[in-house]
C-alpha cells in the first residue's frame, strides 16, 4: 500500500521523459514552406513556427512533456499548412485552364461571322 502511494506521488511530481525528437516537426515546417504555404496558409504556418519555438524553449527548461505536446502540434499545423498550399495550387491550375478555355471561346466567336439566332 505504501509502495503504491509512493509510486503514485512520484508519478504526479514530474515526468522523467527523455527530451523530444524535434526533427519531424522541423522537416514538416520546411516542407510546408517549400510547398508555398507562406502564401497559401500564412497564419497556420506561423502558428506552426511559434509552437516549434515554444517547444524548443520548453525543452531547454527541461519541461519535456510540454515540449512534446508543442512539437506534435507544430508538426500537425505544418502538415495542415502544406495541405492547404497544395490544394490551393491544384485549384489555381484548374482555374487557369478554365480561363484559357474562356479566352479561346471568345476568339472562336470573334472569328466566326455572327449568326442570327443565338
Amino acid at each position: 500500500m505504501l509502495l503504491a502511494l509512493a509510486l503514485l506521488t512520484a508519478g504526479c511530481a514530474g515526468s522523467k521523459l527523455p527530451p523530444p525528437d524535434m526533427s519531424a516537426a522541423r522537416s514538416a515546417i520546411a516542407e510546408a514552406d517549400q510547398s508555398g504555404a507562406s502564401e497559401a496558409a500564412p497564419l497556420v504556418l506561423r502558428n506552426a513556427r511559434q509552437k516549434f519555438e515554444q517547444a524548443e524553449r520548453a525543452a531547454e527548461n527541461e519541461d519535456y512533456e510540454a515540449a512534446r505536446f508543442l512539437a506534435d502540434q507544430a508538426q500537425v499545423d505544418a502538415e495542415l499548412a502544406e495541405a492547404k498550399a497544395r490544394s490551393a495550387t491544384a485549384m489555381a491550375a484548374v482555374e487557369e485552364l478554365r480561363e484559357s478555355i474562356r479566352v479561346l471561346r471568345e476568339e472562336i466567336n470573334r472569328s466566326r461571322p455572327s449568326s442570327g439566332g443565338q
Binding site: D72, Q73, V76, D77, E79, L80, A83, K84, R86, S87, T89, A90, M91, A93, V94, L97, R98, I101
Partner: peptide, 28 residues
C-alpha cells in the same frame, strides 16, 4: 483533441487537392 481536429482538416484539404487534380485532367 486538437491534433485530431487538425488531422480532420488535413483530410479535407487533401480531398480538395485530389478532386482538383482529377478535374485538371478533365479540363485539360
Amino acid at each position: 483533441a486538437y491534433i485530431a481536429h487538425q488531422r480532420v482538416r488535413i483530410a479535407e484539404e487533401k480531398a480538395n487537392q485530389r478532386a482538383a487534380e482529377k478535374e485538371i485532367e478533365t479540363v485539360r
